[in-house]
Nucleic acid binder design. Sequence first.
DNA 1: AGCATTTGACCTAT
DNA 2: ATAGGTCAAATGCT
Length: 313
Amino acid sequence: MECSWPENLPPNKRKLIVELVRGREFTNQLKNLLNNPAMNNNDDGSDVAGDLVAKILTSFSETLSVLSTNESDEVVKTSPSWEDARKSEDSGESCKSSALKDRRGCYKRRKTTDTCTKVTRNLTDDGYAWRKYGQKVILNAKYPRNYYRCTHKIDQGCQATKQVQRTDDEPPMFRTTYSGYHTCKNLLKAPQIILDSDPRDSATLLSFDTNDQQHHDSTGIFASLRSTSTSIKHESRDEEIPGPYPTHNHRSSDYLVSPELTTFESSGPATSTLSGSDRGDVMSEVYSCTASTHSMDMDLAFHFDDLPQFINF
DNA sequence: AGCATTTGACCTAT
DNA sequence: ATAGGTCAAATGCT
């Protein structure tokens, strides 16, 4: 069947649709294959199901790749980039004078991204290499908030960031908020995607708190991902978070321990909000995520008693 | 020397 | 106006 694109559809959106359609097609083939296991081997002995899974994963990778590119495109479009700011400065229009110092602050704060928050008793490693780029005193908070970006922001353009803040609670808890996708090729472990795990498969409690106006359509992409193991190893050595001011040193190599992999992805031109959750003394860790697109809002709360499953970026 | 962290400045969102 | 997020020079560490 001939497919005609709307004239004004940007190429990257076409690519998104193509990849999603491909993914759906491969998934359907896999479904048929599962209904007829006898078809799983080609004449040459190759594993058809395995090939299809590989194709599906590739399709998702491509989709996520396009989405991350879109995000940066939008930033450039809606605001002057650092380079643009420099240019307008050169023409005597904005920022201020004197060379290097004026680069400072000529940036665009990201308006919205998908975020995911986890609250833990200890600081746990998430398997990624982070570099601290800031620390802020937060109003009415006893402890400062620490800002980290992916170590591969420069060399691979990875946009993932996280914020870590010690709560005022006793015993101390640590709230980690992740933003953006890891698009880097993490050398420690590759991000892994397993689609739509059945919540009954694990002890994780999933709470879908949906809005009244919620409606779904195919533009919402939200894949929940299943743990590859039944437990989460915590980092052998806790990350150090500064106590009430001032700060300690901690180097990015502190974050390089690789625990088991669990993955979570959400995407979409999005607005995001964070929500808290509490199960009193039963709770050991709580993860909450909100991802919303223009067509779908979804909140998730993850409770972990024995750490069978969680989220990873 | 090279890389990571610290920290004040600067900017945006509200 | 203010709180919070990011930048980048200075500084520290290996």
